[in-house]
Design a protein around this nucleic acid. Structure first.
Lengths: 215, 215
DNA sequence: ATACTTAATGGACGATCGTCCATTTCAAAT
DNA sequence: ATTTGAAATGGACGATCGTCCATTAAGTAT
């Protein structure tokens, strides 16, 4: 065995002391954790670098400033959400009914909806009005997700031969997303009293009201 | 007539230059306006007193500090909302159906739901996690409003002789409030595309799904 | 070995934060 | 008129904010 431990220290390895990408990620993670813990108002450069265990100048070095770090954190947070959502939805069946309920269960599940994420979500939403760079990544759910739900509801709506097929599907999409948003607010307000099962069954009940032969 | 013009300058009069109560209200109004305009993060003591046209020390004089002023502003904002809501609901008929729809129309009407109020609402909600004194006044809608809706739905639910009367009413209450919350988020995200009529008809459709013989 | 590029450091900087209080102003009571 | 007490003022204060950069350390190429 001529291979020694140092040989595999390729550029792509993690053994190096220096690791800009890792530090970049650490700063974003520290930012999100700080926001979740003490709120975006009290999230300062000092608190972030202290939590990340990095030096003061690194925020300016890697992001150019605090605001750009916040924007990057918002983007990263949104990407995490949609990546996880995609994963969970793809595990569902192919029939529209399963897809819709997979979205509901994913959005209300503890992976996506928890104290940390609801706090971060609302912190960014509150800040999005004035900070345009944050607003881009916190628009009401993702376009892709909206399309997924809309497509599923359009398929279902065809089973109800009424003339307002498309309006029904649009209303169901709009309403479902609003319901999910409202559940997040409710969870944020009192996480201890909130029941995921109750929330899920309520949403199912509302959807079933629109599509009595399904759900 | 021994009464001269000065006699009626009672403590409750408004003729005086000094008017502590008015200044107190002015500070709260300036705080809310500032939050709506530039966000709670950038809302500073200097910005508030500048907008109110008052002197620097007045915040400490009347409220004891910035945080207490914010709490008072949150309380005032919530009270405004519920006062207006009460007014609009009382103008409605006495049948449960009218009451529910009155709540919906009030919550989605331009008096209660507008850019200013949705921004303030979400700013406070985002800050409520860390600031307990704010949290008290921004709990998911008011208890009284919740009771009003719940009572109406219980009456309606009795017409559907199923055994899950109370669960149905509970679900309808929970779901309606979540829907309304979600609509506020949607309005905040893109106020220009938002349609109050569409939102109202969607909510009515969802409720009608639960109570097909009504709405 | 040496030169060169990039990553990382942490202190200095002016600006601004919220708080506080000595002082002044006003209005009612005497 | 004079006294008394509350309302209002605005500058001073230390603390902290975010930014920036001269310097050091680490990794790569010659």
């Amino acid at each position: 065995m001529s291979a020694d431990a140092r040989t595999d220290a390729k550029p792509s390895g993690r053994s190096s002391i220096r690791d800009p990408d890792n530090n970049r990620r650490a700063l974003i993670a520290a930012t999100l954790d700080t926001i979740a813990e003490i709120g975006i108002t009290d999230t300062t450069v000092s608190k972030i670098i202290q939590r990340a265990g990095l030096s003061r100048g690194m925020i300016h070095l890697h992001f150019g400033g605090k605001n750009q770090l916040l924007a990057a954190a918002a983007k990263s947070f949104a990407e995490e959400y949609f990546t996880e959502m995609d994963k969970l939805v793809q595990q569902a069946g192919n029939d529209p009914e399963s897809i819709v309920m997979a979205v509901v269960r994913a959005d209300l599940g503890d992976v996506l909806m928890n104290e940390r994420s609801t706090r971060i979500w609302h912190a960014f939403r509150g800040a999005a009005n004035t900070n345009g760079s944050i607003a881009l990544f916190s628009s009401t759910r993702d376009k892709r997700l909206r399309t997924t739900i809309h497509t599923a509801f359009k398929t279902i709506a065809k089973d109800y031969g009424d003339e307002d097929d498309s309006i029904l599907a649009r209303d169901a999409t709009f309403g479902l997303l609003a319901l999910l948003e409202g559940m997040w607010v409710d969870y944020l307000s009192n996480a201890n009293e909130f029941s995921r099962d109750v929330a899920t069954s309520i949403i199912r009940r509302f959807i079933k009201g629109l599509f009595p032969h399904h759900f």
